[in-house]
Amino acid sequence: MALAALLVLQTLCTVFFVADVVGDLILDGPDLHVVFEAAVAAALGVGVVFAGLEMRRTLERSRRAEAAVSVASGAFAELIAGYFERWRLTPAEADVALFALKGFDVAEIAELRGSAAGTVRAQLTRVYAKAGVSNRTQLLAIFTDDLLAGALPGLERRSALSSASDGGPA
């Protein structure tokens, strides 16, 4: 990690300068040169502390982001389970519906569940009926709609960006 390498280098420099200042003080006594060097060493020391604090913030931010992703994927699974429950899907229908959401086609689902394609097709039809949709795309749209409802600011930003690039280099 680049920040860690920088921090290590800064610390090495600080120890170098502090040792140099102490050595000069013993040999030459405190003159202007030594005072200036001492100031540089002190500034480096403060720099190390600030870089360290920044490093910790970066570490904590990446850990939070990881936690958020796992929370989000957990929340999405919960959202799906909530809908399935509300539609009163049987366990078999819920299974088939989940495979359908993941993008498997009828033949694949039939193979995965060890049942006939006709059975899967019938189960999917019942799922669509219970969910009040007429095909797989509409089924998926129910979930993506919920997800996107919270993401409007991002959409606005993206459209602002694209309009900026439209009017840009002409």
Partner: peptide, 19 residues
Amino acid sequence: GYGALAMLVLRLLWGFIGP
């Protein structure tokens, strides 16, 4: 030796401000 001292200083500082 001075390099090791620098690393010790950094680790001890990290003991106060690290994660």
